[in-house]
Design a protein around this nucleic acid. Sequence first.
DNA 1: GGTTATTTGTTCGTATGTATC
DNA 2: AGATACATACGAACAAATAAC
Lengths: 225, 225
Amino acid sequence: MTISKTNRLSLVEQVVSQIESLIESGEWKIGNQIPPEMDLIQQFDVSRNTLREAVRSLVYAGLLVTKQGKGTFVRSSSALGAAIERRIQQSSILETLEVRHALEREGAQLAALRRNQEDIEQLRFHISACSRAAEAKDIKAYEEADIQLHKSIMVSSHNDLLIDLYEHMEYSLHESIHQIVEMSSDVNFHLNIHCKLVDSIIEQDVNRAIETVNEYIAQFKKSLE
Amino acid sequence: MTISKTNRLSLVEQVVSQIESLIESGEWKIGNQIPPEMDLIQQFDVSRNTLREAVRSLVYAGLLVTKQGKGTFVRSSSALGAAIERRIQQSSILETLEVRHALEREGAQLAALRRNQEDIEQLRFHISACSRAAEAKDIKAYEEADIQLHKSIMVSSHNDLLIDLYEHMEYSLHESIHQIVEMSSDVNFHLNIHCKLVDSIIEQDVNRAIETVNEYIAQFKKSLE
DNA sequence: GGTTATTTGTTCGTATGTATC
DNA sequence: AGATACATACGAACAAATAAC
């Protein structure tokens, strides 16, 4: 028999599953403290060790954080972030940039196809924030605004999986964006090309949106050498 | 002080980290059984529960599997797979297909730029396997060959992060590929367009490679309606 | 500033379920 | 069927960090 019969779920797995549901459903909100171990032991009717193994699993996965003496808190609603962070740390900037290219190109294409009125407002808001920061020569504010802009482009794609992957990469991208912005001496070029991208998306010019993404990624790659 | 001082690593975290190293370094090979709990307790000099919490974390992350009565085995060297699988299960086929588009488009582009002689041989091998399976009208073999072909295209990109993301998605893609191949009544169209893609990569025609990927993804999207 | 209560961190002992030979 | 090796699960105790009084 090579049939991999699905073993009955262990107690720990059952508890993990229940906690996941509580987090996903929003019953346990992000940032909030969860009930102490003793309460959960009663709630789930398991021993302390079993409960701890379950909590520990979710800590490793990045859903929870425990602080000795204080309690346990909800950190995220998805395990993707932690896993991607770990993987990206082992990658070169070039590799990360190319994956970013993959996601942003697709995101821009879909955004140009699907953006609605609300998306347009968000895009305009964030591009003007970039513009203001550039004018004030506030590099830190510019980086933050740039990240928000890219995120809102992704949101305009209306593909939740794509948005999730990008948002969870974004944390790791922070560093590489910083390096890139610092290297590209010309902030205006950076700003202009983003204006062009936003414009393409609003005008629903799919090809121009894709080309623009290609253009600035190519620019980044060049500055990496 | 808003500085988030990095708390000293808990014992469990130290053990997790050590086990990760053992797996990454290849000292514990994939598929192999790891030493029993009692041995590890001595090796790491921790209590049973501490060790179990560490192992349990890595089981949840997908690095290890435990089988009661048999032992614990190494399942994977990366936590990405399990996390991506969980996330993709919550997504629609369309969303998954679009992310696949993102990765495959980038992969094809980079493959066309970087493929070496060894890559070319692999690509030729797998495309001919597809061809043989199509001729024999063996759908199951065709699907398998198709997956291997796509994987070898990704390998030709020489971007390990991209390869990892794709390979870990591939498992979840299996199902959607099956549905798509089944739906597309014309296997020859599917085969021809893949020949064109492989040809473009070998000829280093970057634009044609990208266009070909766009073409068959568009075809898949159409058949989803 | 010190004491106490709360909460997580860690250890030990014991019993049970499961697979292999 | 019995013995062995292994993971599963529970309960009790003490340590360490934090918060509240």
